[in-house]
């Protein structure tokens, strides 16, 4: 399979610069550990964050970080669309019998992100121990769906912006900004924020669907949510729908692709 083969080649290529490779993994882990350490401090200092227990909040952070790890590990190419356009790589992709989107994904495989998986595992273990949830198969399935949903949501947002980046090189900044916003606000129960802010995170930049709503469903706290419980339950589905819509938008923008002179 092409994807596997590519991942193998990327790892091989990365391994040839061994110190770089180890360094990258280390940076990935250190970065994630800092995030977690910060989150832990916040959680332990404020045991009741918006009425949620520390375990609940940790579960939000775990789902989000897992989604983010997969999203940026596999889809980091989306954030390089500006460069790919400038280098004429998108032109090259259009000359091959494969979807351009898939080739963007395949262009670069971000190793250090997968170092973060270890951190994610530790966080999940801690969260599961702290929360008071009866882990029925249905709930486990929903947790998995939530992680997939969190991944798709981040990918959807980056895809929409990446499609813009096909013609506007400065969009890269917006992509970085979006990622930072998601990292900053995705880890907390958003009802601690003022109304206007969480409205933005539901309707404009739908970070709420990433981990906050699904975890509310898992922990049975949907009554405190600003949306109907059904909407919260449907979060993974909504994320998947947004992802499909984003793909459609990508296709539209690709038809308007203008390449670069030269």
């Amino acid at each position: 399979m092409l994807t596997l083969r590519f991942i193998k080649l990327s790892i091989k290529a990365a391994l040839e610069y061994r110190t770089d490779f180890i360094f990258m993994i280390a940076v990935g882990i250190i970065w994630q550990v800092t995030v977690v350490a910060f989150a832990t401090v916040v959680i332990t200092r404020f045991p009741g964050l918006g009425g949620w227990s520390a375990g609940d909040v940790l579960l939000v952070a775990s789902v989000r970080l897992a989604g983010h790890t997969f999203a940026s590990g596999f889809f980091i190419g989306l954030r390089q669309v500006s460069e790919l356009t400038a280098d004429g790589k998108i032109d090259a992709f259009l000359l091959r019998p494969l979807p351009v989107y898939r080739q963007v994904m395949l262009n670069y495989f971000h190793m250090p992100e997968f170092g973060g998986l270890a951190v994610v595992a530790v966080m999940f273990a801690a969260a599961v121990r702290m929360v008071d949830i009866d882990w029925t198969p249905w709930r486990i399935g929903y947790l998995v769906a939530s992680v997939v949903g969190a991944t798709l949501l981040e990918v959807a947002l980056q895809t929409v912006l990446g499609a813009f980046a096909l013609r506007r090189p400065t969009v890269k900044l917006w992509q970085e900004w979006t990622e930072e916003l998601m990292a900053a606000f995705g880890n907390y129960p958003l009802h601690i924020l003022p109304n206007l802010a969480w409205a933005v995170f539901v309707f404009v930049l739908p970070i709420a669907f990433c981990a906050y709503f699904p975890v509310a469903v898992l922990t049975g706290q949907t009554s405190s949510l600003p949306v109907p419980a059904g909407v919260a339950v449907a979060s993974p589905l909504i994320s998947a729908t947004l992802f499909l819509a984003a793909l459609g938008w990508w296709r539209i923008e690709l038809r308007r692709y203008e390449s670069v002179g030269g």
């Binding site: 990327s10 290529a13 004429g88 032109d91 030269g262």
Partner: peptide
């Protein structure tokens, strides 16, 4: 396109 390569830069 002589001015740009279509090969993978790192492979």
């Amino acid at each position: 396109f002589g001015q740009r390569t279509q090969l993978w830069w790192d492979l």
